[in-house]
Design a protein around this nucleic acid. Sequence first.
DNA 1: GCTTGACCTCAAGTTAAGTTGAGCTTGTAG
DNA 2: CTACAAGCTCAACTTAACTTGAGGTCAAGC
Lengths: 147, 147
Amino acid sequence: MAPVRELTVGQVAMRSGVAVSALHFYEARGLIRSHRTSGNQRRYSRDVLRRVAIIRVAQEVGISLAGIARAFQSLPEERTPTREDWNLLSAAWRDELDHKIAQMKKLRDGLTDCIGCGCMSIDKCPLRNKEDRLAREGTGARRLVVS
Amino acid sequence: MAPVRELTVGQVAMRSGVAVSALHFYEARGLIRSHRTSGNQRRYSRDVLRRVAIIRVAQEVGISLAGIARAFQSLPEERTPTREDWNLLSAAWRDELDHKIAQMKKLRDGLTDCIGCGCMSIDKCPLRNKEDRLAREGTGARRLVVS
DNA sequence: GCTTGACCTCAAGTTAAGTTGAGCTTGTAG
DNA sequence: CTACAAGCTCAACTTAACTTGAGGTCAAGC
């Protein structure tokens, strides 16, 4: 087979639509990998494009880079991930997403009922009920999760 | 009528479930207001509790403090907001929420179809389609929006 | 062979939403 | 009247996810 042309950072950046600096950053975070030329420049195999695409999609769905990295660990190190590999990943995320959608619906419905009423006390109002608030991660600054 | 007792920061913190530092912060951001005692301590009128409750709910729904502040500007400055005032607010947010839910559903459905397939190119894949991505705000670090 | 654009590294800056701490003042209970 | 908890201000730190900049290297065209 003809040798599949490797990509430079610039090419990956252009084709994936993310900045070069972001690619460096993803690499530092272990989300993508590259090897170096004799002149120390990065070269990527073509499947990095899929990885990057999935990173962006997952982010939009509200998954943090840490979460994505965790999920990516289920992918094989040696071989290029197959479609099946990716499907396993997406299945897990789809569940997360389903859950978030459900939570948001609950909030939306609760909003109209509760915002103008007298039930906004911390323990009584369904909206203010700590039991099943949407999860937050991180301890310092709060991140708003999802999308 | 009996004079309605004003609240100290500590009391508001306890009753609303947010930290004193967060209340200071909200005040600096113009989300809540207080007046000062002769000794320069904050005193809050009771309706601050509702405000704070709504701030938290709105945040969970993915609205940034800046967005909340914007919305709060529609509230009357002079009088305590009525139920009607709040309802107007919530209506707008409910729409936002509806929209976000719709986007998430789209993403969820697209995810299963697309993640394992070959369509992940920036311009063809529905998931990667720039047209109606979820809005991002801010220019520096990206925030993940919603909940 | 040199110029120019693409790369490289590493440090520091940015935003959101707060938290933490130092140093100082208030207010209330005994 | 004196502790001591609760307040106050202001500056600095935190996290995530990047971007920006400085200072230096690589490679391809003319």
